[in-house]
């Protein structure tokens, strides 16, 4: 951390020699990344122990821009890669930063199993309702009736409500914010980073190039205006009530924040019965 308590100083966390980035004008990823890095500073986790793991897609490029141990893996497989990394070295703070297509579609099975295990991972899922990098195809999150290059007459393929999915699967921290709510997003990411177990932060973000222009929000600013006018903060909302309809309301807030034994807790507890040296909990080890 920079030491001057200016958490917003994130230059030291960016690979400036990789700029300019590939993201389009109006894309939400820049501000989400800023919130993430600020949150990382604020959380005061030791930066040398942080690993950022991404899959494939626009959001997947994030790993390449952060000056941290960072892994740009295969499409959908960031979560199992991160699982191996975390299990090999439980000291690491492992963050999966990827998009809705990567995490919710091709990687959907890994998402629910990591949540089921309450694996010690923080997943930041940037949801722009579309496959951006490949040119704007329908995603597992695309609202009904939305136009994409593979739903040219309107999407008739019912979308995932990701907070509901991960809550049902066992996530212990679930929040949703938008790329406009930078401070609240930052706070949520700090909470997620400090939460033992599987934490999930969905970030609704603009993709004017691929999603917005086909759905009457043709600029990043128009999409931000839409978030501003249509977001409703409902902390503790039942995740079954947070579906997102085309150009409809977006329920945001912290939906889930519960205590539940993590994978590591159960592993050490149950193996500890046979192997007493393993019975320490993570918290005990941290305080030791």
């Amino acid at each position: 951390m920079s030491g001057n308590n200016d958490y917003t100083q994130i230059d030291n966390l960016l690979r400036e020699d990789r700029m300019p980035h590939i993201w389009c004008p109006g894309c939400g990823l820049g501000s989400v990344l800023h919130s993430f890095l600020t949150a990382l500073n604020k959380s005061e986790v030791p930066l040398d122990k942080v690993s950022v793991v991404s899959g494939i897609g626009c959001t997947g490029r994030t790993a390449g821009y952060v000056k941290l141990d960072s892994f740009h893996t295969t499409h959908g497989r960031a979560i199992p890669f991160a699982t191996g990394l975390k299990l090999a070295n439980p000291e690491l703070k492992v963050i999966v930063f990827s998009g809705d297509g990567d995490i919710g579609s091709i990687g959907g099975n890994h998402l629910i199993h990591a949540a089921r295990r309450n694996m010690d991972l923080t997943v930041i899922c940037v949801n722009n309702f579309i496959y951006g990098m490949t040119g704007g195809q329908v995603a597992p999150t695309t609202p009904l009736n939305a136009r994409t290059s593979t739903s040219p007459y309107g999407c008739f393929d019912r979308p995932f409500n990701l907070p509901k999915l991960v809550t049902a699967a066992g996530a212990t921290y679930v929040a949703r914010w938008t790329a406009m709510h930078v401070r609240r997003l930052e706070k949520a990411i700090v909470e997620a980073l400090l939460k033992p177990g599987f934490s999930f932060v969905e970030v609704i973000a603009p993709c004017p190039t691929q999603y917005g222009r086909k759905n009457r929000q043709s600029t990043g600013l128009a999409q931000m205006d839409y978030y501003k006018e249509n977001s409703i903060i409902k902390h503790g909302a039942d995740t079954k009530d947070v579906d997102i309809d085309l150009n409809g309301q977006i329920v945001i807030g912290k939906f889930v924040d519960i205590e539940c034994p993590t994978f590591y807790d159960l592993q050490t507890e149950i193996l500890g019965k046979t192997f007493p040296h393993m019975s320490k909990t993570q918290a005990e080890e941290a305080s030791a």
Partner: peptide, 29 residues
């Protein structure tokens, strides 16, 4: 593995298994 201080995990499929061992290796194990 628990006898020698290692970690075993049964993953959700073989895709995840292969991804996990790559992560494990970068974790230094």
């Amino acid at each position: 593995l628990p006898e020698v201080g290692g970690t075993f995990i049964q993953m959700e499929d073989e895709i995840a298994s292969m991804a996990a061992i790559l992560g494990g290796s970068w974790g230094g194990v």
